[in-house]
Design a protein around this nucleic acid. Structure first.
Ligand SMILES: [Mn+2]
Ligand SMILES: [Mn+2]
Ligand SMILES: [Mn+2]
Ligand SMILES: [Mn+2]
Lengths: 228, 228
DNA sequence: TGTTATAATTAGGCATGCCTTATAAAATTT
DNA sequence: AAATTTTATAAGGCATGCCTAATTATAACA
């Protein structure tokens, strides 16, 4: 509400790229946003003037406390809408992100607070990203890329990349969703495919994807024997 | 989705002002939108180019079938969101309109269809405006302004003006909501107040407001004796 | 310490949607 | 028919958010 849609998306992206820890290169930001470096530079200057980011030429851009707060608010609105679209409306898993990408900019604090209550204060979006007051979900403690699993090692999917609808369709088709248990079979050499097993079936995916799927080595190896 | 937020709001307003029947004067449109006549003229030309309105200089602007369809879609999205915000989230009656005014532009056909299903295909928004495929709610059959009631005549409130949050607060405070039964007591002369009775109490409101509240003379005069 | 790659910056443009001021044309009144 | 009011249109601007091409500054590398 306070900032433009554009500004909100910039802040989110800076946060996603690690702008809470170190500084994010403006050219990396530009290529991620699909906007020319010159335009990104312009916007960065405006955001810096508004006190939302700190910018040091040749070093990069990082979020100020105010910028982080703004970004977190947008993440929260986004993920709450995703839960509503998915859980209440039954919108396909792969479609909720793109819809939430617009709704997030049209939502007041009061509506998002009531939405959270309505949804019973969910902890995660359908793709595994946290919903909380202080979460940004850029940095993670225990989460490791699927690619880092050793052969034979099992883990539970925590989070999947959500910024590409086609990729989400593909993940959905493979059954690769948060909460699903997978076992690493093999990582083929020479940038070859990553073979995993889930629900008793073997699937092969590409390395870049395996690097972006985050898993955590859950305590219980027998979860699949207990529940459905 | 297809048209800009601005264009969608223009189409809605043209529809509200009767652009489906005759032509709407561009200066009236300008003052209603709170936008300069020159800017409205510019936008009208663009909408005409897109085939959404028909514009005849010195006569006014009216919606084409395509423009009407677009406007109806926005109305539908708006009123569905209002129902959700009110019924599911419990957002105050007077606040839902302004929130829906933004959400309506961020909603795909699929989401609005699923929202309608989720809400069990409601027939009206919380202010009494119809939700349907072919409804525009500019023109009404049986609905008459409250001001036209004769002294002693009773009617049920059908619709209230919804474009002013403060007015809605006031109406809410008075208990003037759709479905409420009112009886005309007196219309004072010389532009004096309009006195009505509702829920056993007498209230006086201004003429302009009484003109914008629509009522219908319901068949049953004993509704209040039957239900809660 | 150059050279080279990367990042920053300047300059000029475009689309959208708004603005004011001024002029022209048509419609209404008188 | 003439005067007046309303409406249309032309001209020039502004903010936002994007663009390309060209130049300059810095960092990294050899
Ligand atoms: Mn967005
Ligand atoms: Mn998500
Ligand atoms: Mn609107
Ligand atoms: Mn309404």
């Amino acid at each position: 509400m306070l900032h433009s849609e554009s500004a909100e998306d910039y802040l989110k992206t800076i946060c996603k790229m690690g702008g809470t820890q170190g500084a994010v290169s403006t050219s990396a930001l530009a290529s991620r946003l699909g906007i020319s470096p010159v335009s990104v530079h312009e916007m960065i200057r405006k955001l810096a003037e508004q006190g939302l980011v700190e910018y040091t030429p040749y070093r990069g851009v990082s979020l100020t406390p105010a910028g982080l707060r703004a970004a977190q608010n947008v993440f929260r609105r986004h993920r709450l809408w995703e839960r509503f679209l998915h859980d209440s409306l039954g919108l396909p898993w792969a479609r909720v992100h793109e819809e939430a990408e617009r709704l997030e900019h049209a939502t007041s604090q009061e509506v998002s607070d009531r939405l959270a209550q309505f949804l019973n204060y969910p902890q995660e979006c359908p793709h595994g990203y946290p919903i909380g007051q202080e979460t940004c979900a850029c940095e993670d403690e225990a989460a490791r890329p699927l690619l880092e699993l050793a052969a034979g090692e099992s883990a539970e999917i925590e989070r999947v990349p959500e910024d590409n609808a086609q990729m989400l369709e593909y993940l959905d088709h493979l059954g690769l969703r948060p909460g699903v248990r997978v076992t690493m079979i093999e990582i083929a050499p020479f940038d070859g495919p990553v073979t995993i097993e889930l629900a008793g079936e073997r699937k092969a995916i590409g390395r870049p994807l395996a690097e972006r799927i985050l898993v955590h080595i859950a305590a219980s190896h027998h979860t699949e024997h207990q529940g459905g």
